[in-house]
Write a protein that binds this DNA or RNA. Structure first.
Lengths: 419, 419
DNA sequence: GCGACTTAGTTTGTCGATCCAACAAACGAA
DNA sequence: TTCGTTTGTTGGATCGACAAACTAAGTCGC
């Protein structure tokens, strides 16, 4: 549900493009005067004023404080308008569904997470439940007078982004699920405003936009879940690959011990650093942390607590997994040469014990020494929804003219009593 | 020597963009009528005519055959103009320097290759020699009335593309070489028309543009030289990474036998599939193919001949290297999910024996089964220069208005004798 | 062989977006 | 208080694309 070509062919297209330039400058450079905005965008002062006026009417920007103190006429700041235009991020995972709504300033306006058993419920019921969740959030937003720019669904699996179809999500046991279509029929949103993407991709976007790697234009996101997911951002753009498989890093054949993997192959990286490998390494069967009926996050905290206490087995296991993580990451870093590797999912939760061994391997194996740092995500399990909301908002930043204009009561000028 | 931001801010910028759209459509869709061009670009017929006229004046396009036979008025084809505007590709490698000049239709207008010992000559002498080579080519072009759009130098090493500086080229023993600057002072070209890039990157561009993977927008290029180089194109764009190290795939730690690598580490992929590994595997010391005073291409042909004859040692060695190539490639394919993997350098020359074992490993290890094919480059050792020439021409495709207008004698309309 | 139809390309006038230059507004500095 | 500086607005001027009407040049059907 994307894919219109770049088409600034006529003057209105040019206007769209310049509106976008100004809006994006407000996002990346913060509040600033129209004069500065003009210098930064290379546009004329007069044009900039006109563009800002239009952004105001579309409720995307607003005039703020007046800054005096310097030589010359004081300037009035232009800033992104909070709580007026928002984007909806949705997520389906094995154990839960979630929503988050962000505004243009990346403020969270709404957030909800419900546990559920996706495999048991089945595709249709889950999507309908997600639609309800989304509809609620959208209703709340509209009641508050906000305009909803769009919604993006994060799914752990292979997604045909163009058509909004989940092609294969092994952990959900889904195949060929037309998520966007089904959602569109249940939500009061334009079809092109609804999209679906891989969860690691969206998490990478979130880290790029607001997380620990904000503004980094080349980054690699690695998340430890049931599998191992990867999201790649190169030169500020998400890399999806020819068929959307980019980031299927869990199945790199790296494990020297040819352990069997769920994918049918042997020696996959996942068999070293996946969640199953972690649990097997830190505890025997029957241990509470291996009881999958318990909440994953709680079990991970138990593991973290044991490591903190100095439990030898736990520490050794985490150190080994950290090393394996570093070895795999070093390969990716040599190929992609990112500025930062961001660890998410359980990697972030146990990062305190995983990061150091991983960094050691990286330092030893990476060619571009010193140019890449390894950091832990602080978005936790909300990275995907935030990324989704951000992706939805990106539609507005790319083309601000899709935002509706406020119906301004056209100030009929008083003509001194004449009709 | 690049990096102006995207700046279609005013109407002339819009015009530039539309000129580019038309020109690129001519490249990708071939000769076509103005009416069809208008439908394809989404521009108005009148606008398209005007744009084509300007492209004609800049000698980028020309009117060609008239196509009749269908209902309606016959159409006149518009096509890229051959032999009028050209780009220069340059290459420095360990044993040779090379030039190639291409026109807009990818025709080779000039080509030359001179053997030399780069290490012995030293930076300054080599660059000066390259400048001479380039100056000759440019002189020939200008004599023929052609306009030279720019020149791009391919270097086997890490390049700061922005500033045209070779930061480190181990095989050349170069460090911090201001190639672009030095070349600019010796060539009659604008500084911004001269750029430098990694040879594998440019080769990947060549394969993307004219080679076996023409038009493929997600591809991985792997070249076997002294080291192993990689070039990544994702979504039609070259991926360079944060510091230009993208494609340093030779040093992925994959070799289970921890053989020592030139980089100081152990177990690098290069120690399995690099040229040194090949030569060691196929022949004992003293064998003619290991005599580095001979031309590499000839020695490779000897190896190919032995394999063709059925020599057991050669065949076994090639099969093993092919497998190792496949294992490494599978990792990259899982990460990047390209449509095609193109093998260049010595991989292509010995491709007949390397490809099959490599394909077997790929088939076994790649997640996105069936979506990626492995092919051999047919550009041989000219891939880098061709890619360079293409990169130079890309400046024109991106902004046709940089091409000079032909001085057309402005037809003063006869005003019936009145002064 | 002729008119009806179809498609290619041009001409003319209009619209719209940006730019430029002049100007008003509001302040600091001397 | 005056001068210089900077912000933001106003009123043409310019330029590029578009729409619609028109000319050109063929095919098709009878």
């Amino acid at each position: 549900m994307r894919g219109q070509a770049d088409r600034p062919v006529d003057q209105t297209g040019l206007r769209r493009l310049n509106l976008s330039r100004v809006l994006r400058s407000l996002r990346s450079d913060g509040p600033q005067s129209r004069a500065l905005l003009a210098r930064r965008t290379g546009l004329n002062k007069a044009t900039t004023s006109s563009l800002v006026a239009e952004l105001e009417q579309r409720r995307l920007a607003q005039l703020g404080a007046i800054v005096a103190g310097a030589v010359g006429r004081p300037s009035q700041l232009v800033e992104l308008r909070p709580r007026a235009v928002c984007g909806v991020g949705l997520e389906i995972n094995v154990n839960y569904a979630a929503v988050a709504v962000l505004d243009l300033t990346d403020q969270v306006l709404f957030s909800k997470r419900v546990p559920l058993d996706v495999v048991e419920l089945g595709q249709v019921a889950v999507i309908d439940l997600l639609a309800e969740l989304a509809a609620d959030a959208i209703a709340v937003m509209r009641e508050a007078g906000n305009w909803v720019a769009g919604a993006t669904v994060a799914v752990p699996g292979l997604v045909d982004v163009e058509n909004g179809v989940v092609q294969h999500a092994p952990n959900l046991r889904w195949r060929e699920a037309s998520v966007a279509e089904r959602l569109a029929s249940r939500l009061d949103l334009a079809p092109e405003a609804i999209s679906v993407d891989n969860d690691a991709n969206l998490s990478a976007l979130a880290e790029h936009a607001v997380g620990v790697a904000a503004g980094v234009s080349d980054l690699l996101y690695l998340t430890g879940e049931v599998g191992v997911g990867g999201g790649v951002i190169a030169d500020g753009r998400l890399v999806r690959g020819a068929t959307g498989f980019t980031g299927e890093v869990g199945h790199m054949p790296l494990n020297p011990a040819p352990a069997e993997c769920g994918c049918g192959r042997r020696g996959c990286w996942e068999t070293q650093v996946g969640l199953a490998a972690l649990l097997r390494a830190v505890a025997d069967p029957g241990d509470e942390v291996r009881d999958s009926t318990h909440d994953l996050e709680l079990r991970l905290r138990v593991i973290a607590a044991r490591a903190a206490k100095g439990d030898a087995r736990t520490r050794t296991a985490l150190a080994e997994i950290g090393s394996a993580l570093g070895v795999g990451a070093s390969i990716l870093v040599n190929v992609l040469n990112p500025t930062a590797v961001v660890l998410g999912g359980y990697f972030a939760l146990l990062g305190e014990w995983l990061a150091e061994p991983a960094r050691r391997e990286l330092a030893e194996r990476v060619m571009a020494t010193g140019s890449c740092r390894l950091v832990l995500s602080d978005l936790g399990f909300t990275a995907a929804v935030r990324g989704g909301a951000h992706a939805a908002l990106d539609r507005v930043f790319a083309d601000p003219s899709i935002a509706p204009t406020e119906i301004v009561p056209t100030e009929v000028p008083h003509l001194g009593g004449i009709a």
